[in-house]
Design a protein around this nucleic acid. Structure first.
Length: 564
DNA sequence: GAGTTTGAAACT
DNA sequence: CAGTTTCAAACTC
């Protein structure tokens, strides 16, 4: 971390403020309700905001009252329609209205020796050129005298379109920050979600662990009237439990005012959030140090190449995997056998996630192995302080646009950078001058690359078509009675009663035979498909014909039995 | 599914 | 920093 104004919480001003909304961001034991609100947005910084704030990105929290879920996303100054799932690099976070995220600070705080514990206790808004900032300030009373004093505290700051109000709780350990924001009306004005991307691993700024305090911190993100239910995240949040990718802003790395904060991968918060939602009884506000139940973790992953740079660069799923009910794509399970999932070989570990439903052996990437995991994270960071930083960053494009590019570059020698072994190719980006690859074919004008891209596009189209056809067929099948009556109301036997198991098996055999035949004569896949489908059509005709003939026989036999 | 290839990560 | 080894994913058969 460099000495930049990272201790700022940028707030994106609303376009036409018509109504004031208050969002409590509470650090304390009990979240305080704030005035009724309809819409608001709060940006909390995490990583890489801008050139002037290069290592932190603002987290935009869009909240709203009502019953629909509210989104928290990680994109600078962007607000999205509530209830929309926005995929992030490692997943998505969806915050329900009135939901509270609580962080158990008692175990969260574990500062490196010599560093002061940090308590968020004030808010300071600063007017920037592009953003308006709310600065979280360590009160001077809590600052270790040996450490440089934090910036001056400001209680209430009014900006052009923003009112930031700060309050400090009567409990010194439970300071509160309220941010009052203008709103644009009853409906949040969303930015288009299409192809919404971010370029770096999104992280959430959390108070960093300390070994000196036992107080509990609660971050409340809510803009609605007093909630009927509160969901809180209170993980057993120790330094050694912070996920890989967490950066504690402290020491020389961090500007003085943000020491004691941790940049936590969004996926980690999402995991915890989902965990608590699954088992809310372990996360009641009355529970001072609730435990985290490992198996409650639900992995969150995204397959958007823009969303998880590390994931993309390391092979986290990009293929069409099924989508979980949460809207997130399931993370690809790892298969580590020797690394205990505590080295960067492990995708889960590298992405700051716990292993869940993986096929790994001797896995220590879980809460049962906190200490080991902590050591491993430290070890990785010792070797490479950027170990958990995104591999895909931004470079300058031809027309000045910022393209995605591999920060470190690849070193491929034999794959021509046209296989998924290559991190650039896997991330669907072209190799750059940073790469040290040999025989690279992963560049703009490369004919090999173009051919591959065309093939990939064609394959994708086919998959989409097949998926659409399957869903259409299944919806049609679902409309057919599973156990059709043998005869209709008039007593007439219905044709589909002739589709017995034997008939179905025979049909399948015909189709398989046709497929083999088509394959044997080396027909193109499209032709093979057509041949099989045509065979299926012939089978259907035979079945229908057979049914009609049998029906005719039956009706004749019936009329024979009934003399005039 | 087993075996091979590959390149990043880890190690020396 | 360079060379080597280890590792897990990608790939092939």
């Amino acid at each position: 971390m460099t000495g930049i104004p990272v201790n700022k919480v940028p707030i994106s001003p609303a376009k036409t403020p018509t109504k004031i909304t208050m969002i409590p961001v509470t650090i304390g034991k009990s979240p305080q309700r704030i005035a009724p609100a309809s819409i608001a947005q709060v940006s909390m910084l995490t990583k890489s905001l801008s050139d002037s704030c290069a290592t932190l990105t603002p987290v935009t929290v869009a909240t709203n009252s009502g019953t629909r879920p509210t989104m928290i996303t990680m994109s600078p100054s962007k607000v999205f329609k509530q209830g929309t799932v926005i995929q992030q690099k490692t997943g998505h976070i969806q915050i329900q209205p009135n939901q509270t995220i609580a962080i158990n600070k008692s175990q969260l705080i574990q500062q490196p020796s010599g560093l002061r514990p940090i308590t968020i206790s004030n808010v300071h808004q600063v007017q920037g050129s592009k953003f308006q900032y709310v600065r979280l300030v360590t009160p001077s009373s809590q600052v270790n005298p040996s450490v440089k004093t934090a910036i001056p505290m400001t209680s209430i700051v009014q900006a052009k379109n923003i009112v930031a109000t700060t309050t400090t709780s009567t409990q010194p350990s439970a300071p509160q920050i309220k941010i009052t924001l203008p709103v644009t009306g009853p409906q949040l004005m969303p930015k288009p979600l299409v192809n919404q991307t971010t370029q770096s691993v999104q992280r959430i700024l959390l108070p960093a662990p300390s070994n000196t305090t036992t107080q509990q911190s609660t971050i409340t993100l809510s803009a609605a009237p007093a909630p009927t239910t509160l969901t809180q995240i209170r993980p057993n949040f120790q330094t050694n439990q912070l996920p890989p990718g967490t950066t504690i802003l402290s020491g020389a790395d961090a500007p003085q005012n943000v020491q004691g904060f941790a940049l936590v991968p969004a996926s980690y918060v999402a995991q915890i959030q989902q965990q608590i939602q699954t088992k809310p009884q372990t996360a009641t506000p009355q529970t001072p140090q609730p435990t985290v139940v490992r198996q409650e973790f639900i992995p969150i992953a995204s397959n958007d190449p823009n969303i998880s740079a590390n994931a993309m660069a390391r092979g986290v799923p990009i293929n069409g995997t099924s989508i979980e009910p949460t809207g997130a794509r399931p993370r690809k399970p790892c298969n580590c056998t020797k690394s205990q999932c505590l080295k960067l070989y492990c995708d889960c570990f590298a992405n700051g996630e716990f292993c869940h439903n993986c096929n790994c052996n001797n896995c220590a990437n879980n809460l049962e192995h906190e200490e080991e995991r902590s050591r491993a994270i430290k070890s990785c960071l010792d070797r490479n302080p950027m170990a958990f930083h995104p591999k895909i960053g931004k470079g300058k494009g031809r027309d000045g646009e910022r393209d995605r590019r591999h920060n470190k570059g690849c070193n491929c020698k034999r794959s021509g950078c046209l296989k998924n072994y290559c991190e650039c190719y896997e991330a669907k980006i072209m190799c750059s001058s940073t790469c040290k690859c040999i025989g690279c074919k992963n560049f703009e004008e490369s004919p090999e690359r173009k051919t591959l891209m065309h093939l990939a596009d064609a394959a994708e189209v086919r998959v989409q078509q097949q998926t659409a056809a399957k869903s259409k067929l299944s919806s049609q099948i679902s409309g057919i009675p599973s156990r059709p009556p043998v005869s209709s109301a008039t007593g007439e036997r219905l044709p589909y009663t002739f589709i017995t198991t034997e008939v179905a098996e025979a049909t399948c055999a015909c189709l398989l035979a046709q497929a083999e035949e088509a394959d044997k004569i080396k027909m193109p896949p499209v032709v093979q498909e057509r041949m099989v489908i045509e065979e299926f059509g012939r089978c259907l005709l035979q079945i229908i014909d057979s049914a009609n003939r049998t029906k005719g026989l039956l009706s004749r036999a019936s009329s024979d039995k009934q003399p005039d």
